[in-house]
Design a protein around this nucleic acid. Sequence first.
DNA 1: AATTGTTTTATACGTTTGTTTAAAACAAAC
DNA 2: GTTTGTTTTAAACAAACGTATAAAACAATT
Lengths: 225, 225
Amino acid sequence: MPKLSSPPTASRRDPSETGTDGRILESAIALFAARGFGEVSVREIAEHANANPAAISYYFGAKEQLIKQAIRAVIAPLNVKRLAALEKVTAASQPPTVEDVVRAMVEPTVHASLNGAGTEKHYARIMLLGFALRQPFVDEVMAEQTDIIVVSFVEALAKALPNASRASLFWRYDFMHGATQHILLDQTRGHRLRRLSAGLTDTDSAEAIIRELIAFITAGMKAAA
Amino acid sequence: MPKLSSPPTASRRDPSETGTDGRILESAIALFAARGFGEVSVREIAEHANANPAAISYYFGAKEQLIKQAIRAVIAPLNVKRLAALEKVTAASQPPTVEDVVRAMVEPTVHASLNGAGTEKHYARIMLLGFALRQPFVDEVMAEQTDIIVVSFVEALAKALPNASRASLFWRYDFMHGATQHILLDQTRGHRLRRLSAGLTDTDSAEAIIRELIAFITAGMKAAA
DNA sequence: AATTGTTTTATACGTTTGTTTAAAACAAAC
DNA sequence: GTTTGTTTTAAACAAACGTATAAAACAATT
């Protein structure tokens, strides 16, 4: 158990400043993303981080805490970008267009997953695993990280589509999320869509994904009820 | 290892005819869906099925084979329904509408997940877990079960949208899949969307989900390139 | 140089894991 | 009723798991 006085992790802010705890967290994220939470052992993480297994207990306590921190570390910075992009289009005197709002969600998400440096690029996989592992402690951190985003974007969509019902906007937000999330997994799943389409879909190209997603989702958002 | 002469599993067709192997498979599916492949032990499955742990080895060999059979048993019958629904709308003399094709995908999928009897109702979770667990033997069975569906539906979409590019249709098929898949998980994730929308979205209602999905996806499919 | 607080290490504990073995129980055929 | 083939069982295997312990190494302060 970590010392109660001045927990080392809480004080450090940037995990890329390679202290032992930062190395552990980065290794955990990379290995989790590649193979899954339950499929990676703390020993493997420690080895990958050039650290001792006991150092994980020292800095993070139990494995559950490490998983929570990993989810947080990947999603939180992306949320900052999404909310910043959203504010940029909603702060204007004119109400935003549907495409503006959709872009504020899609662009940061796709760029992080495909071109992101560091832990950002593991967003899609970590998100998927967070949805897959159905345990209370995961639900907690997932809700903590994603609830605000849903509400903020639905509000912005309501400004862009004043005649749409609130219910429709919640449904369609979820469809947007699902479509975006799923296409971003193609890269890590052996480019299944690219293979099936005989190369017609370049699922490594952030620009292509963004273009196609925005066209599809924007039209879907505008659909009649 | 099972006897090589006349393997017991291969000869039985309906897993609900409660032989020991059928009970094991059903228990495995239910437990896997609830908690994940790696998080459920063969001992738990055996106990839930009122069987001996060794019976799993006897009928299925290794745990990997049991996982493969579980994925197959859940997805295969649903694929039959989807292809039947698709054939019904493409067999006519007139080309199908976009909505026809979308409905042929959405309706069987949603009904299976929400109103399905037996193992069908675990479709969304098993599908998610199949995508989450990135191992060669899982990729194999997932491809085996889903590749034909992609190709068939993209072909049908091409008939409904003769002016759309093939590339667009592949992209949008994937978006359709992602949106459908994700909304079906809300039920098993504590009704997160329903909670955030303060009850405006009834994610237990197959009719509501189908209606909203079809409106959104059909509009997305028709979007200009 | 000695002291204090923090970090890292080697080692071990008790469980649980997937799988195997060989014997027992059962069923069917003659 | 004995034989033959199949199914089920109890018991055990080695390996891997998460975590704890206590000593060593290190760093900072006086």
